[in-house]
Simulated scan of single mutants.
Amino acid sequence: MEPWSEYSRFVIALFAILTPFAAIPIFLSLTEGRSEQERASTASSAVLTVAAVMLTSAFLGDLILKVLGTSLDSFRVGGGLVLLLISLSMLNAKVSPVQHTATEANEAEQKAAVGVVPLGIPLMAGPGSISAVIIQMQRGEGWEHAAMVVACILFVCMLLWISLRMAVPIGHRLGQTGLNIMNRLFGLLLAAVAVEIIATGLRALFPGWQT
């Protein structure tokens, strides 16, 4: 089991990756004209999708690495680069193309189950969050570590659900400027985490660099 600080950092990083403040304007746009009950259903389906993807990635991460024939340290470097790209987009108050493209946004307007696609996948549960979960699960061993990772995922999903359920008052209170500021703040935190993940992977891949 890892130190408590590692799990708290994972919670902050995962919350930043899932970008609720970037998702709120998209959520409001996709659910415009719908009743409060329909918005609640959309928020629930989005969060359940995120939770399912995250938990599946956590427990199948080892198998995924073996099938790909890659080491954890190589995956750390690759996953860290994905997180860094997402954080740079967040610093510019934009949704990264890694998470959500214009084509997917146009297609989503024609779909009824927008909570699953594109809100759940790939806007929130995308390559960045999947990489972060797999890396965190592989950091330790034992059922205690696995239980803590699962607890962190479920806690973040609860925060995400609260954010989406309160999307209307949050959007009205903060406005686009306030949402952009929060997005940039979490982007800065995510950039720091991404750099450390990349550095850890590079140190393990190239031990001679430490001398």
Rank of each mutant, 00 (worst) to 15 (best):
R139V: 01
E144V: 02
V168R: 01
L81P: 06
M137V: 04
I170H: 05
S71F: 00
T103G: 12
F155I: 00
R165S: 14
V133K: 13
H172I: 12
L159M: 08
R139E: 05
S89I: 12
L83E: 02
I162M: 03
T177K: 11
W161H: 10
P97D: 05
A93Q: 04
G79E: 00
P97L: 06
L83Y: 14
L68C: 06
K94A: 06
A147D: 03
K111C: 04
G80K: 08
L160E: 01
C152P: 00
S129T: 04
L154W: 13
G115Q: 02
N92E: 15
P97R: 14
I135M: 05
L84W: 15
C157H: 07
R76K: 09
A147F: 05
M90I: 10
L123R: 15
V150P: 00
I135S: 02
M90E: 07
Q136D: 00
S131E: 00
S163K: 00
V133W: 10
S87K: 08
Q176N: 14
T101H: 05
L154N: 02
L159V: 01
E109A: 11
A105C: 09
E141F: 15
E107T: 14
T177S: 11
A102S: 11
V133Y: 13
L84A: 11
G142F: 15
